[in-house]
Amino acid sequence: MSETLSARQQPLVSVNRLCKTYGGEKSFFGGATPLLKAVNNVSFEIAAGETLGLVGESGSGKSTTGRVLLQLEQPTSGEISFKGNNITGLSKPMLKPYRRDMQIIFQDPYASLNPRMTVGEFVGEPLDVHRLATSRSEREDRVAGLFRKVGLDPAFMKRYPHEFSGGQRQRVNIARAIALDPAFIVADEPITALDVSIQAQIVNLFQDLQDELGLTYLFIAHDLSMIRYLCHRVAVMLRGRIVEVGPCEAIFENPQHPYTRALLSAIPVPDPDIERNRRPVSFDVNANIPPEAAVLRPVGEGHFVLEA
């Protein structure tokens, strides 16, 4: 799979045979805690300007993949490259220049804001950390610009998080994430906690920012419903493995793995005539854990399925 992509262009982000296990430590009495392979031999690449959707249910390892990718946690094994440089296991000072280029947006816009900081300070904080604003007024101007970019009135800068609705708070988080002009953003379920009438706003904002700033996204989601509007390619994860990856259209029009089919059919359709006569494809995760020896095999242009 890596050959086909690298032939075209160098990817912005590339993940090679990434593993992250938890547990397995010897306890005081000699027994070992159970070993959990949260991420198991995961490889993918993301081209500059591309959005890759990473979809899976709770426990699939999708969020861990995102966190390890940004070096918020160390991988057990495997390699992460960013703009062609191997960044796996770099020390904090060595990592700092890369941090500017790689940002994350979390699911819960309430928990990820600092309640004692005005939202203006919060958005401007990365500029201070990286010493990018030479004066107070320059900092103000840049923060005001960021507010406008995400659709917030700069007059709100002096306010505190509790004064905002969920959608506005997520806009604040997005403003902070783009403050350092990053190339790459991991968005970990950024719309899941938002109200239905707000989700479309944020999905559209993600797209507008990509068009305007040329951002590259890893968009993590627990279902496929919004993926088609946002992503160029999708990877479906099940119990730490990627079971299917391919262009968005191929995944939606021609899903090959039974789990992908189950995920697609599980999205309730907001039309009573369709929804009432639909039988979702059932899939028992516990009975279908991918065998260790399974490998991704090509089934179409850039479309791969995990097979034993």
Partner: peptide
């Protein structure tokens, strides 16, 4: 709500404003 539209082809309708 997403109705099977595609990236770059259809834009999601958004209800303006906040709750």
């Amino acid at each position: 709500l997403p109705h099977g539209g595609k990236r770059g082809v259809t834009r999601l309708y958004q209800i303006p404003g906040n709750p």
